[in-house]
Structures are given as structure tokens and as C-alpha cells.
Design a protein around this nucleic acid. Structure first.
Length: 418
RNA sequence: GGAGACUUCGCCUAGUCUGGUCUAUGGCGCCGCACUGCUAAUGCGGUUGGGGCCUAACGGCCCCUCCCGGGUUCGAAUCCCGGAGUCUCCGCCA
């Protein structure tokens, strides 16, 4: 949700941001107009209401004719107040829906343009030289690590079972991620994965991504696509102490409908309806957010280094940012079987956008309440198994376990079963 | 699933029966000042949040806010209806 004060004082900043995203600029003027209308409706209501209260106070002491006159006037006023109040409600409704339709202001420096206009910031690590690389499905089959057929049998397409070393590998990877986060002062959290509409709305997932979200109609609850949702909602309607950032690391299953993604990444576990994720989340002061964002990215790169995967970092273009994000960096892992990069992490600086919707504030030095900033970033997911298996495969179909994962998995090499 | 109790300005709490003087009580915490060799203690004062208008600013005036949404009324923290949440007991089940 956009800051109305900023919009009023500086509409050109909002227009420029919309332009960078390739989004509507006209809506900015609609919003300005709605804001204007709301304020005049409020002013009318408040002056009527003030008079009503004034007269109401005289009522108990009034007698006789005086009282009759008061009654007549206040009865009249009551109707006017009611009408004025309805006008305010109407104006606020319009304002709010427009306000919700405008995405976050893009951070200065973010590349302009659409999905293909990202900027590659760096490539890290050496791609392994593998002749005729097996893909993760073939490798997992040999290792008996992922059972896609039975996943389809039990639950349908894009579901899977992680079995044996597959299950161990995921558990190890996620624990490695949590342990790293603990080192940097994060509080571990296992959140609810069913949330109320307000939580979904507050994090901005019911806009353009609404069709991606599972909804339980009978209970009016949503299955979260990321623990970002319950982590952000954790402090909804609270006033926080934010001398230093408050950091949580969430571990949860994530659910995505993947509607309209048919034909994309159909094979294996690259794009699935359910997966597990360890997610960093931070509440901080707006002026700390940029630095925190870079820290998140550094911690993601630290994880990728631990599992010894070659990757690149991209600066996502404005038009490809989610509605909540002001800036987003993705890490993409190298995929030998496909000769391309695959997104494995994403970190967004949501500045005050989510906090404004969720009403999350802090007190500054002068004691005034201010909107907090929120940030999120992936630390590990089920999808990571794909580049881990593929990049560490051996000619015989076995897979070397990265050193950092060995204590969790309990072996140095995963051998194919026969 | 059934029955009951409860939800008040950061936290705890008075007020709700009997509508107006609630512009919401007190305590804790926090902030400021005074006192004190320093600290502690004490005293005095301040302290819900959101919004509108006026102002260069300091500040001032006003509206909303007693879980949420309706209703009754000239007037609602208070009465009525609906909803949410918390707790207790019962039932059922891991």
C-alpha cells in the first residue's frame, strides 16, 4: 500500500515508479482525485458531527420550549450526519481500492523494463564439466530419492514423494539453512500454513497472484505459498521496538496452484504444488532496509557456496517485481542437464508497503510511530535438490554430497540402488 | 459439536446493571522536571492510536477510536442483533 502523504506531496515520484514497471500512470491521478474527495467528505462529516455533539451536551440541562427546539434541530442533524458519514465510507472505499491497486515504489537503481530486462550482477563458481549429464529425475530414480510416479498416483501431477536419501538430503539442507540463520541472530519459527484472508491480502498475494493461491472455501482460509505470509502477519497491528532489525527464519511447507504454468518445467520437482522452504524475514526501520537487503543476498550466497553450486545473481527488472517489492535479487543455480540457470533464491525489499497494509509500526527516537519495513529472502528450498544432484553427479550416476551436508546426510557419496 | 464467562488508551485494571457530567479510573512501564555527592528512593507533571482543518514553524481547533459490523436513540464503552477471538466446563477424537 502506497503512502498517501508521499503521493500528495510528490506525485511525480509515484508516476516515475509506475513508468519503470510499465504500469498505469493514469491511476495515480485517479488516486489523487479520490484522496481529494475523501478529505472533503471527511471535513463535511466532521463539522456536522461537531455541531451535533455540541447540541447534545446542552440537552440534559434544557427544559421546556428550549428543549423542544433543541430536539427538532438535533433530529434534523442526525439525518444529515448519517448521510455525510455514508459519503465518507463510500469515498474511503474508492480510495482504498485504488490504493491497493498501486504496487510499491520501485527502488532507485532497479533496472527498468520487463521479465527479460534483468541485469546479471555476477556469476560465481565453476560449472562442472560433465559429458552427457543426467537430469535430476534420472539421478533421483537411480538413487531412489524422489518418487514422482507415486506422487501422481496419490495426489496428481506436480506432486512427489521424497524417499530415502532424497528425504535425508532435504532435511539436511533445510537444517543447514536454519543453523546458518541462527548464527546470524535469527529466531527460528515454524508458522501456521493456513492463514486468514487479511494475512494473504496484507502481504500482497491476493492481487496479481490470486490464481496461484489455494483457498479452502469451506473455512475461508488460504494455504500459504511461502512462510513470508505468516511471518509478516506475525506482528500485524503491533508497535515494535526496532533499534535493531527483528529477524525470523521460517520453516514451512509451501503450496502453489501453478495454474497456467503448464508446459513449463514439467519434468521432476522443479515446479510443484507443494515444497518445503526455509525463509528469512526481517522487520526493520526503513532507513536500515537497503543494507538489510544486501545482507540477505550475502547470506543466500553463503548458503549456495556451502552446497557448492555454481550460480549467478540477477537484479530483477521493475516490471518483473511483485507488487510488494521495491527491489528484488534472485540467485539462479546452474543446471548442467539444461545448460541454463534456474531460480533458487529470491530476496525482496518490501520497504513499508506490507507494513502499511498490516499496520506494523515502531517508535522513533522522538516517540512518534512510524511504518516499519519488511524484507524476505529464500535460504533453501526443495528445488535446491535439483542443482545439488545435477552438479555433483558422477559418471556412474552416483552423487557426491557437499561437505557441509555430509554431517546431516551421514555419507559422502549417494550410490545408485539396483 | 454443546453450555457459560470474558474482550476498555504498551501491559494490568475501574466503569457497562441505572445511556448524556467517560473530554475513560487507578497501578505498572516509559518520558520530562525537582530533590539527592552518584545511583536508588521520593515528589510533581506528561503519556492510546488514527485522521481533518489552520500555521512558515512552534502550536491550536476539531473528528474518529472502549474486539469487529449493524441497529435503537436527539445522544451508546454502556441497550439490542450478528460476527471474531480468549478462557472454563462437557462431549468427541487424535
Amino acid at each position: 500500500m502506497i503512502d498517501l502523504r508521499l503521493l500528495r506531496e510528490n506525485p511525480d515520484v509515484v508516476r516515475a515508479s509506475q513508468r519503470a514497471r510499465g504500469a498505469s500512470e493514469a491511476i495515480v491521478d485517479e488516486l489523487l482525485d479520490a484522496d481529494e474527495r475523501r478529505r472533503s467528505a471527511v471535513a463535511r462529516f466532521e463539522s456536522l458531527r461537531a455541531e451535533q455533539k455540541q447540541l447534545g451536551k446542552q440537552m440534559p440541562k434544557a427544559t421546556g420550549e428550549e428543549k423542544a427546539a433543541l430536539l427538532a434541530r438535533t433530529k434534523e442533524l442526525a439525518a444529515e450526519v448519517k448521510a455525510a458519514e455514508a459519503a465518507v465510507t463510500e469515498a474511503e472505499k474508492r480510495l482504498r481500492s485504488l490504493q491497493l491497486a498501486i504496487p510499491n515504489l520501485v527502488e532507485e537503481g532497479a533496472p527498468h523494463g520487463g521479465a527479460d530486462d534483468y541485469v546479471v550482477l555476477r556469476e560465481v563458481g565453476e560449472r562442472p564439466a560433465i559429458d552427457n549429464p543426467r537430469d535430476h529425475v534420472q539421478l533421483a530414480e537411480g538413487l531412489r530419492a524422489i518418487d514422482i510416479e507415486r506422487g501422481a498416483k496419490a495426489s496428481g501431477s506436480r506432486f512427489y514423494y521424497l524417499t530415502g536419501v532424497g528425504a535425508l538430503l532435504q532435511l539436511g539442507l533445510l537444517q543447514l539453512a536454519v543453523n546458518q540463520a541462527l548464527q546470524y541472530g535469527f529466531t527460528p519459527v515454524i508458522p501456521p500454513t493456513l492463514v486468514k484472508p487479511e494475512s494473504m491480502e496484507g502481504t500482497g498475494f491476493l492481487g496479481e497472484h490470486a490464481s496461484e493461491v489455494y483457498r479452502l472455501e469451506a473455512d475461508d482460509l488460504y494455504l500459504v505459498g511461502t512462510s513470508e505470509v505468516p511471518l509478516a502477519a506475525y506482528h500485524a497491528d503491533e508497535i515494535l521496538e526496532l533499534d535493531a532489525p527483528i529477524r525470523y527464519v521460517g520453516w514451512s511447507s509451501c503450496y502453489r496452484r501453478e495454474a497456467g504454468s503448464y508446459g513449463k518445467d514439467v519434468r521432476g520437482i522443479i515446479r510443484v504444488h507443494q515444497f518445503d522452504k526455509v525463509e528469512m524475514f526481517s522487520f526493520c526501520r526503513p532507513e536500515q532496509a537497503h543494507e538489510e537487503h544486501l545482507r540477505f543476498l550475502a547470506w543466500q550466497e553463503e548458503m549456495l557456496a556451502k552446497v557448492e553450486i555454481p550460480y549467478r545473481v540477477i537484479d530483477v527488472a521493475a516490471g518483473d517485481l511483485g507488487a510488494s517489492a521495491a527491489r528484488k535479487y534472485d540467485c539462479e543455480a546452474w543446471l548442467p542437464s539444461q545448460g541454463r540457470y534456474l531460480e533458487v533464491t529470491s530476496t525482496s525489499n518490501c520497504t513499508t508497503f506490507q507494513a502499511r497494509r498490516l499496520n506494523i509500526r515502531y517508535r522513533d527516537e522522538s516517540g512518534k510511530t512510524q511504518m516499519a519495513a519488511t524484507l524476505n529472502g529464500t535460504l533453501a528450498t526443495t528445488r535446491w535438490l535439483v542443482p545439488i544432484l545435477e552438479n555433483h553427479q558422477q559418471p556412474d550416476g552416483s552423487v557426491r554430497v557437499p561437505k557441509a551436508l555430509q554431517p546431516y546426510v551421514g555419507r559422502e557419496v549417494l550410490e545408485p540402488q539396483r
